[in-house]
């Protein structure tokens, strides 16, 4: 499998704090990479660096063989990098349909608004929001807004899709539904990087796991190896286990 994304010694500093520290990571075309780690580990920052929201302080990012370290967000988007936000980012006054149409229209400059709305209808149907097409995004429930976020990301026809905690705040049924969608998206040929705290989902979906801790990559490999890694258990999984079983 060819490498679709390559981070080379990427660091991102906020003042004195290293949110990412010399991260070197490759992502193969077609895989579903789980990106895990405790709160503040730098997971969202990694997505922000790749999608040019907060550029890297040092290091290089290459996408499909081309250097994208210094491109702008909108250029990254047009190259086929798309993401959902951990805190959903809708266009609140617009209808669900126009939210998705915006993504379809602006990610490919030649697209007419009419064609974009047609495409948007399909993507809304895919995430099960066709009934909400005319509703303004602000009036949707959190679960629906998460799915809207996903429809927007898909409308950009991404080659690489980052999902930043799409399941946070959802109930069990909603998580199952979202997991089903992710499987389908992966099957359609989109490479996925998912940030996820629910280990059950990570193990169910991901073909590989990378672990961040204090901005550094501390593990990277097959799921069954990573969950047995002592550094990972110490930094993250132990903590999760303790939280789940109610003793701190």
């Amino acid at each position: 499998m060819p490498e679709i994304l390559k981070l080379d010694n990427v660091s991102r500093r906020f003042g004195g704090l290293y949110a990412l520290r010399d991260v070197t990571l490759g992502i193969d075309s077609g895989e579903i990479l789980g990106l895990i780690g405790p709160n503040g580990a730098g997971k969202t920052t990694l997505v922000n660096v790749v999608t040019a929201v907060t550029p890297a302080t040092s290091g290089r990012v290459a996408f499909a063989g081309e250097d994208i370290t210094r491109v702008k967000s909108y250029q990254a988007a047009r190259r086929g990098l798309s993401r959902t936000f951990q805190v959903v980012q809708p266009f609140p006054e617009m209808s669900a349909l126009d939210n998705v149409a915006a993504a379809a229209a602006f990610s490919r400059p030649g697209t007419s608004l009419h064609a974009a709305r047609d495409a948007a209808r399909e993507h809304l149907a895919f995430v099960g929001l066709e009934g909400m097409a005319g509703q303004s995004a602000a009036t949707l429930t959190l679960a629906m807004r998460k799915r809207l976020e996903l429809a927007k990301a898909l409308a950009m026809r991404p080659r690489l899709l980052f999902l930043d905690e799409v399941n946070a705040g959802l109930n069990t049924a909603e998580v199952e539904r979202a997991t089903g969608l992710i499987h389908q998206i992966a099957k359609s040929g989109v490479t996925i990087v998912m940030i996820e705290h629910l280990m059950k989902v990570v193990l169910n979906v991901c073909t590989r796991i990378a672990v961040l801790h204090n901005g550094a990559l501390i593990a990277n490999g097959a799921p069954r190896d990573v969950i047995k890694d002592s550094a990972v258990i110490e930094a993250y999984l132990g903590q999760q286990y303790a939280r789940r079983h109610g003793h701190g």
Binding site: V53, S73, A77, Q89, P92, S107, P109
Partner: peptide, 14 residues
């Protein structure tokens, strides 16, 4: 209209 409502999201969709 997208920019007015959410500029970060506008950039993110291209």
């Amino acid at each position: 209209s997208c920019i007015r409502q959410n500029e970060a999201a506008s950039q993110m969709v291209g």
